[in-house]
Design a protein around this nucleic acid. Structure first.
Lengths: 215, 215
DNA sequence: GAAATAAGTTGTCAGTTGATAAATAAGCGC
DNA sequence: GCGCTTATTTATCAACTGACAACTTATTTC
């Protein structure tokens, strides 16, 4: 109902420059596939986009190619390299750094689309998912072990599998809080800061002892 | 090529009594849908069963009805009421009980089919999923808080949301270990007992303090 | 303002989907 | 061995799927 140039009221075919439209497709495809799953039809997506279905094939050779772009936009583009710097800032207590990190990290991943895309693609068995987990391990969990060693006055050493696994438990506990909230839509505590803080507290209560033991 | 009674070699139509076949369908449907997702075709399932697709409709009015039976077989039938007794056995230290409980509990849920069915149905937004989480809360997590209170010499009291949330973090950490192992098929530590034991250790290191504080 | 470019649509195809109806045949009771 | 019951198959439907070719038209260029 937004009238602009009075007479020709409805411009039936709203054209967009190629790059712009492509971007629009990817962004809305994230929402669409997150909600309906990757098995949902390209016609359903086209309807949501307000265009016809064959138009999608002008921008992406196949449905799978479009889905790959979705993965890229969600996993790769939203990853912030500065997270590593944050964790490594030894001017602050590790506990502070961890709390801040998990606050900013969950700002990125604790939303319905991210979570659902992640679970859907995980069930599909796509490789990018395993790559993401390796990234988490090398850029987040192993650094956490290293920082904990430093704070405990231990010499640097490569993190053992068991140590990383323990940090995974805390990380997974926080992640699963997001799953319960955003996927299962359960009644979760709305005090997310406290949930994160307590998980970190439990980690730091036990981790130093583990590190000292097996070196 | 397995010859048995020489001449009639291949009995084209192998009939089964109704109840038996129905059960067979449900069991194989669990594997099938766990692997391929609930959007997979009834023809695919029939092929796996070695029968024709319309036969499924003699046993289940619709695909959704069959899927409901799958949920029932996985979530409801595999739940063991004695888990509650195990957690409540005050003749043993809570730490022991928790370790034993998570060992037997993960015996049930740490397998590819259970995990995948759970995630698939969660993404579908079916209500049985939320019901399952409520069961976990009332039969596992709240009892854990109650037992921890008792062991800390505190008077009985209803568990607060924040307390349950903290136990959820440990529970979710263990659960997510299973997800990484069975869904993402990552390189996880194969020492599952230690993973569980350490998660419990971290919980018990912090939980008593939390309980004392807010009563 | 005509011609060229490219954004968008119409039409369609071959394969797949859940589901039903009707035909077939295995195994039981007698 | 006959007839009945019912487990199972064959045949089929209408709707939907990813993908492609050909047509239309908005926008740019000169």
């Amino acid at each position: 109902m937004a009238k602009d140039k009075s007479p020709e009221a409805e411009p039936k075919r709203r054209r967009l420059p190629s790059a712009e439209r492509r971007q629009e497709f990817i962004l809305k495809a994230i929402d669409f596939f997150a909600e309906e799953g990757f098995e949902s039809s390209t016609r359903g997506l086209a309807k949501k986009l307000g265009v016809t279905q064959p138009l999608l094939y002008r921008y992406f050779p196949s449905k799978e190619d479009l889905i790959s772009e979705v993965y890229d936009a969600v996993y790769v583009k939203r990853w912030q390299p500065e997270w590593g710097d944050l964790l490594a800032d030894r001017s602050r207590p590790l506990s502070d750094r961890l709390n801040e990190f998990y606050n900013v990290y969950t700002d990125v991943i604790f939303n319905r689309e991210w979570m659902r895309i992640f679970l859907f693609s995980g069930l599909k068995g796509v490789d990018i998912n395993r790559r993401y987990l390796r990234l988490v391990r090398s850029r987040i969990l192993e650094p956490i072990v290293a920082e904990a060693r430093h704070e405990a006055g231990l010499p640097p050493a490569e993190a053992t599998d068991a140590q990383v696994e323990f940090v995974w438990t805390m990380h997974g506990g926080i992640f699963y809080y997001g799953v319960r909230k955003l996927i299962y839509e359960s009644n979760v505590s709305d005090d997310q800061d406290t949930v994160i803080a307590t998980a970190i507290e439990a980690l730091l209560a036990v981790l130093p002892g583990k590190l000292a033991n097996d070196t």
